[in-house]
Design a binder for these strands. Structure first.
Lengths: 325, 325
DNA sequence: CAATTTATGTCAACCGGTTAACATACCCGG
DNA sequence: CCGGGTATGTTAACCGGTTGACATAAATTG
C-alpha cells in the first residue's frame, strides 16, 4: 500500500503539500495540485482512514446493534440505516446480539474500543444504568432509557389501538394479542397496553400470547398459536406484533381449517415487504421504517456534532387495510 | 477516554509495563499485573483499537458487500457471517450495493481506505479486471472471478436439476423458470442451464422469465409472473430462483384461481426461513447457507494469514420436499 | 517599490498504542 | 559470590496521517 510519502516523492513535493491537497486547506497552486492528483492516480493511492481516524478522534463509523439482521424487520432497517449513513459519510459496523445481554454488553465494549462515533441500539437487554454509563452518543430504537438518551419510535399505543379497533369493527368477539417478551422494557409493549385498554373498554374477552424472552424462532410462533386455538377455539381475531408472526398465524389457521379472514381476522405489524407478498395480503400497522432509520442516523450525527437534539422522536403509524382483516 | 498513559500513571508503572500486561509479553510480576488491571477497571479503560490497527496494519474488520441486507437471503447470510466472524475476532462492515456497479466500486474503495483485512463479495457487478486489481483478500460468493480468487458457492447445476426433475416427477408438462438477470455473471445462472438441459432432454416445453438487472422488487415478480400466465396459461410447473419469488408465485396463482400444488407446482430456492413459514410450505432447494457463510469467513482468515486456501468451494444442495410440489 | 498574497517547504509534535534495545536491580541456586 | 532468570523502567522509533509554526520566495497589488 502506498503512503502519503510515496505520493509526495512521486509528485516531487513535500508530504505537507500532499496533505494540503488531500484536505483542501492552505494555498495550493493549480499545477501542484494536478501533479499530486496524478501521482495519487498512478500509485492508486488512497489515504489510510485508520491513521486519519486516530488523529481526528473520529472514525465516521456507527455501530448498529440489532437482535438479528436475519429478521426482515431488522434487515430492512439495517439496509435503510446503512444506505442513509453512507450518504452522510458514515460506515456501519453491524452487531447481532440475539437479544442476549452478555453479547450485547460485549458488543458495546467492542464498539467503544473501535472508537465508533455513536451507537444505534435496536436491542436493549441491559439495565438502564449500563446505557447511562456510556459516554458515547447513543440512540435507542423503540426504547426509552433516560431523559439524556434520544430515542426513535413510532406511535405504538396508537398502532395497538388501531389494530384492535379494526378487529372489533370487523366483528371479532374474542381476540388475542401475540407479542414478544413483556419483560424487556420496550416501547412496543404499549401496543399491548392499548390492546388491553380497548378490549376492556369494549368488554371483549381477550388473551395474551407472550413469546419467550430471546426468540425470533418462527417455529415457536406456530406452537404458541396452535396452543392458543386449542385452548380457545372461539378466538376469531388475532393481533400479532409482527408481520412474520402474522404469516405464522395464517399458516396455523390454514392447518386448523379456519379461513382468513372469514373465520379469523388477522392483523400484523410493521409492514415489512413480505406482508404484501403473501396471499391474502396481510392487513397491518405500518411503521415508517425508512424515516425512523434516517432519523436515527441524523440523531447520531446531531449528538456527534454536539447539536441539540430532541429526546423523544415518535413517528406516526398507519393502518394498512389489506386482505386478512 | 482514558489512554494507556492514564492507566500507567494510576497504576504507578510505566507505559511499557501496561502494554506488556495488555499483550501478555515479556516478564510481568503478579502484583504488578493486578495493579494494572485494577487501574484499568477503575478508569474503565479499553485499548484504542484504531491505534492498534494502525500499528499492526491489521484492523480485524471484514467488509461485506451484499445487494441488500433487506433481502431475507442476504439478511440471513449476513447474520451468519457476522456471528461467525465475531467469534473469530473479526468485525463486519456492511455495504448494500443495490447491485449498482458504481456503488459497488465506491464501497470497495471505501473498504480499502478503511484497511479492512478482507472483503466478502456477494454482489459482483463489476468487470472481472476490477476485482483482480484488488490486492486485498477477497472471497466471492457465488461467482467465479479468476483462479486467484477463492469463491464459495453451492451446487447450482444440481440444484436446478433437482428442481426440474421434481416438477417433472410430479407430472408437470409445461414449465417455467424465473431467475435474476442472466447477464450478471453469477454461478446461480447454472440453475437455468440445468433447467434447460433437463427440459430439453425430456422434451418438455419451457419458458424463462428473467427479472431486471438490478431488482429485488417483489412487485415486479408478481407482474412478470402474471404476464407469464396470461401468455401461457397452460404452465403447470414453476421453478423460482428464490423462495421470495416462490411466495410471489403462490400469490399470483391464488389470484388466478390456480391451486398449489394441484394445478401448479412450485419449487423455490434457498430455504430461507419464510419458506417454511407460509402455507402451504414451500418446496425448495436448500443451500447450506450457514456453512457457506462460515466458510467464507474462514477463507478470508486463510488469505489474511497467507495460508493456502482452495479456490473452488462448492457445497452440496438438498431438495426439501414440502407442500408446493 | 513596499506590502500583501500566494505557494511551497522544513520541522516537529501529535493521535494512542507497540516494540526493540538497553539498563538496572532483585532473587535464587549452585 | 557469580550467573541467569525475573521484573521493571527509560528511551526512542514506528504505524500513516494532520497540523501549526516558521521560513522562503515568487507573484500581485496599490
Amino acid at each position: 500500500m502506498p503512503t502519503i510519502k510515496d505520493v509526495a516523492k512521486r509528485a516531487g513535493v513535500s508530504v505537507t503539500t500532499v496533505s494540503r491537497v488531500l484536505n483542501n486547506r492552505g494555498y495550493i497552486g493549480e499545477t501542484t495540485r494536478k501533479k499530486v492528483y496524478k501521482a495519487m492516480e498512478e500509485l492508486d493511492y488512497q489515504p489510510n482512514e485508520v491513521a486519519r481516524s486516530l488523529f481526528r478522534k473520529k472514525s465516521n463509523i456507527i455501530g448498529l446493534i440489532v437482535p438479528t439482521v436475519a429478521h426482515p424487520f431488522f434487515g430492512e432497517m439495517t439496509s435503510y440505516i446503512e444506505t442513509y449513513a453512507y450518504s452522510r459519510g458514515y460506515k456501519v459496523l453491524i452487531c447481532n446480539s440475539q437479544l442476549d445481554s452478555s453479547k450485547e454488553q460485549e458488543y458495546i465494549w467492542m464498539l467503544r474500543r473501535n472508537q465508533v462515533d455513536g451507537i444505534i441500539m435496536a436491542s436493549h437487554t441491559l439495565d438502564v444504568e449500563e446505557y447511562k454509563k456510556l459516554e458515547l452518543p447513543v440512540v435507542a430504537f423503540d426504547r426509552f432509557i433516560s431523559k439524556k438518551i434520544p430515542y426513535v419510535t413510532s406511535d405504538n399505543y396508537r398502532g395497538g389501538k388501531l389494530a384492535v379497533e379494526l378487529l372489533l369493527e370487523r366483528g371479532c368477539t374474542k381476540i388475542a394479542h401475540m407479542c414478544g417478551s413483556l419483560h424487556l422494557d420496550m416501547l412496543a409493549n404499549q401496543r399491548h397496553r392499548a390492546f388491553m385498554d380497548v378490549a376492556e373498554e369494549r368488554k371483549v374477552p381477550y388473551f395474551t400470547v407472550e413469546t419467550d424472552i430471546n426468540v425470533f424462532e418462527v417455529k415457536k410462533y406456530e406452537e404458541l398459536l396452535l396452543d392458543l386455538f386449542i385452548e380457545h377455539p372461539e378466538v376469531d381475531g388475532l393481533f400479532l406484533n409482527s408481520d412474520i408472526m402474522a404469516v405464522a398465524a395464517m399458516k396455523v389457521c390454514s392447518k386448523l381449517g379456519k379461513r382468513v379472514p372469514e373465520d379469523v381476522k388477522i392483523i400484523g405489524y410493521d409492514d415489512v415487504s413480505i406482508a404484501s407478498l403473501v396471499s391474502p395480503e396481510i392487513t397491518t400497522i405500518r411503521q415508517p421504517l425508512e424515516q425512523m432509520s434516517r432519523l436515527s442516523v441524523r440523531l447520531i450525527e446531531g449528538l456527534v456534532n454536539k447539536k441539540p437534539v430532541s429526546v423523544e422522536n415518535c413517528l406516526p403509524v398507519e393502518l394498512v387495510r389489506r386482505g386478512t382483516a
